[in-house]
Amino acid sequence: MGIIVGKDTRVVVQGITGREGSFHTELMLKYGTKIVAGTSPAKGGTTIQGIPVYDTVEEAVQKEKANTSIIFVPAAFAKDAILEALDAGIKTIVVITEGIPVKDTIECIAKAKMENATIIGPNTPGIINPNEKVKVGIMPNHMFSLGIIGIASRSGTLTYEVAWEISKIGFGQSTCLGLGGDPVTGLNFVEVLEMFKDDKETRAVVLIGEIGGNAEELAAKYVEEVKYPKPVVAYVAGRTAPPGKRMGHAGAIIMGRVGTAQTKIEAFKAAGVSVAETPFDIAKILKEKLKG
């Protein structure tokens, strides 16, 4: 089990001939991901690491039954790539690309909603399901292990730190996914919490938030309203971030009074969510919560 990706996942890599695309195709294959095709316009007919390359996503779907896409194409072409995947009937699209104009993202997400498809990202490290050996993303393979903790995060390397700690204490992960560092993303904490709620393998959920927007506040409200049946542990990065400055991620900015770490931490605490003071406390809190 786990969420969104699993043993039936058949991946097409959009932008497979690029530097990042080919590099991560190799790492995903090593991890065990079923990569069935790649696309690169005008390079159809060739192969990369034994994977057939097509000109269009439509061919990858028809000939190789691809049902999931991972996108590495540059920001200026990302909207076209996402819309192409949707048009071909792909239902899960992982957008690694960073720096996509927010107008393009908004349009793509609206279109995906119409097609009942899920967009993960943009600007995400992707999604990994260690129990079923599926990684549709760029995270370092060895930091993840078979397990029971669901992780949803707005960042990359910080997520690896936390996942690694969770691996070291022997809990491992059911599914770990990055929502993406952009202000507008295909999935938010509430939607992922909903999915983890019904996943039998997931025994507890970790949310790694940061300053900017109100996704954490909405997650806190949701946990309280549905009396969430599994332990939720949260961490919020950016307590020392000044207002009005973008902290690397396009989405990590305190605008006026909205999006401070303090309001997010308070919202979580008020909803009964355990808040970790440092990322390294997350594993300790999980141990406590899942004792016995």
Partner: peptide
Amino acid sequence: GAGLAMATMDLIK
């Protein structure tokens, strides 16, 4: 990484 950078600042504090 932006998230790790913010977390590092917070740890310093």
